[in-house]
Computed example of a mutant assay.
Amino acid sequence: MANTLILYFSATGTTKKAAEKVAKKLNADIAEIHPENPYTDEDLNWHDETTRATVEQKQEHDGRVPIKDDLPSLDNYDNVVIGHPIWWGIPPRLIATTIDRLDLNGKHLATFGTSSSTGYDRAQSNIERTIKENNYNVELNKGNVLNSQSVIDSWLNSLSLAR
């Protein structure tokens, strides 16, 4: 069986729970993506146009948010799965920073989001654009919003990962 790493960012704990379920099903290692400056509850108030997350998400498509330099090496992994919340229809900008920092060449990549109201189409396009900007040779799977165990199971069965 190929080695799999689950990387996730979770500001409220929802994505962490989904990432842990995915890791358990795939018998994968798991690691958290840490923003350089952690988000506070006030930073995440999407009703306020001046909050940090709102301002970050409304940047141009090439906007980035700094992350801590503590990502694991991908040398021993064939598969990488990145989980994130969906903010304003797309991944938080730090996910693009994460993709920029990883060497995904030759890897099988899958991404998923958590959201109570948004699908994954815009997030998928955002991930695809970031992969293209980095000129990665990677097999990118179709992502999904994981909001129940049955959706997680179905999505995992749809993935084309190294075995």
Rank of each mutant, 00 (worst) to 15 (best):
L26W: 00
V22Q: 03
L7K: 04
Q124T: 04
L26S: 05
E20R: 12
T118N: 06
T12K: 07
I131R: 09
D43N: 12
Y8A: 04
D62Q: 10
N157A: 14
V22E: 08
L5D: 04
R122N: 14
K107T: 11
E60A: 15
A11M: 11
L44N: 06
F112A: 10
W87L: 05
P92E: 09
R122D: 15
R163E: 12
G143R: 12
T114N: 02
I33C: 01
L146T: 09
G113K: 03
K25V: 06
W88N: 01
G106A: 06
H34G: 04
Q59E: 11
L140K: 07
K58R: 15
I99L: 14
I90L: 03
R163W: 03
Y136N: 02
P35A: 15
A23P: 05
T14F: 05
Y136M: 03
G89N: 08
T130K: 10
N137A: 14
L161G: 06
G83C: 07
G113R: 04
R101H: 07
Y136I: 10
L74T: 08
D75H: 14
K16N: 06
A53D: 09
R64N: 02
Y8G: 00
I6Y: 00
S160V: 14
W46Y: 12
K17R: 13
A53Q: 00
T54Q: 07
T114W: 05
T4P: 01
L161Q: 03
E20P: 05
T4K: 01
W155C: 13
V138D: 01
N105R: 04
A53E: 07
V151D: 12
V55W: 09
I33W: 02
A96H: 13
Y120D: 01
T51P: 03
L44I: 02
Y77G: 04
I30W: 13
S10V: 10
N157F: 03
G63C: 07
L159C: 12
G89Q: 05
V81M: 11
T114C: 09
L159K: 09
S117Q: 11
D41R: 12
L104V: 03
K25A: 15
T114F: 11
T98W: 00
N135Q: 12
G143F: 00
L104W: 03
R129M: 10
Q149I: 12
S73L: 09
V65I: 10
V81C: 13
